[in-house]
Amino acid sequence: MELNSFSHGYGQITYHLVLVPKYRYNIFYNKRIKKDCELIFNNICNEQGYKIHALEIVDDHVHLFVEFHPSNSLSEVVQYLKGGSSYRLFKLHPELKKRYWGGSLWSSGKFYRSVGNVTADTIKHYIKESQKKSKAESKSSKSMKPGQRIIEDF
């Protein structure tokens, strides 16, 4: 994975997402539903400009490793994935409506974790080092407010 240049920024937004069907039913044991779900997620991501790095569908949940543009929020991405896949799977497999009579295929929750090429320790070190440089510059200015703390205080 690499960093991307955008109109006003440079970076990468990737997430590991886990989506679970409502009531954690094992609907993906059905190979046809599983394959259709995989195709639907690929289509949604292509339509929305998301990039799937990995996709795994097991009997009772879905793992997605997805990258998207910084103008999209995580909530928006999950909404497109869950809403779009639910709608399309119900159209392709009307028998699912018997099990999910309320109209919702996915549980209301989600698991998400941002994924990147650096560790938390690397970021802490970077911030600490940049703080030392600016600390030396700002000692003469004494512009800190009473009670204000620096990163090293934590």
Rank of each mutant, 00 (worst) to 15 (best):
N30I: 02
S75P: 03
Y112S: 14
N43S: 13
L74D: 07
L81C: 09
F41M: 07
K97D: 04
I44Y: 05
S86V: 03
A54V: 03
E129Y: 08
E76C: 12
E95M: 10
G83L: 02
F111T: 07
D121S: 15
I52Q: 01
V62H: 04
C37D: 06
I123N: 05
Q79F: 06
Y112F: 12
D121F: 10
I57C: 05
R113N: 09
K97I: 09
V62W: 05
E76W: 11
I57V: 08
F90G: 08
I123T: 01
G109V: 07
S71D: 14
H63L: 06
G116V: 06
I127E: 04
K124R: 15
K91R: 13
L74W: 12
G103A: 10
S71C: 12
I57W: 04
N46S: 10
Q48R: 15
K110I: 14
P94H: 08
G116S: 15
R88V: 14
D121Q: 13
E56K: 14
K98H: 04
V58M: 05
F111M: 04
A136W: 05
K132Q: 13
P94Y: 03
I52G: 03
D121Y: 10
G84K: 06
L55V: 00
I123Y: 01
K97Q: 10
V58E: 01
N46D: 11
H125Y: 11
H53V: 02
F90V: 01
E56P: 07
H69Q: 09
L105Q: 01
E67L: 10
E137K: 15
G109E: 00
C37S: 14
N117T: 14
K97L: 12
K98S: 08
S114F: 14
G109S: 12
S134E: 13
K91L: 10
S134T: 15
S85W: 11
C45P: 01
S114R: 12
Y29F: 07
W106T: 10
E67I: 09
Y50R: 05
D121A: 15
C45N: 06
V118S: 12
K91S: 11
I127H: 03
V66I: 15
I123S: 05
V62G: 05
Y50S: 03
E56W: 02
H63T: 00
T119Y: 13
K82L: 06
I40T: 13
E95A: 12
S86T: 03
T122M: 13
N42P: 00
G49L: 00
E38M: 07
N72Q: 15
F68I: 11
N30A: 04
Y80A: 02
I40H: 07
P70Y: 08
V118M: 10
G103E: 07
H53Q: 08
R88G: 08
L64S: 02
S108L: 09
W101Y: 10
G109A: 05
F41W: 02
S108Q: 11
Y112M: 12
S108I: 10
E137Y: 14
E76A: 15
L39W: 08
K110D: 03
G83R: 02
D59R: 13
Y50W: 01
S73L: 13
N46Q: 10
K135S: 15
P94C: 06
Q48D: 07
K124P: 01
F68K: 09
R88M: 15
H53P: 03
I44C: 04
L105F: 13
V115H: 00
S71A: 14
P94M: 06
A54R: 07
N26K: 13
L39Y: 04
A120C: 03
G102W: 07
A120F: 10
N42L: 11
I33C: 02
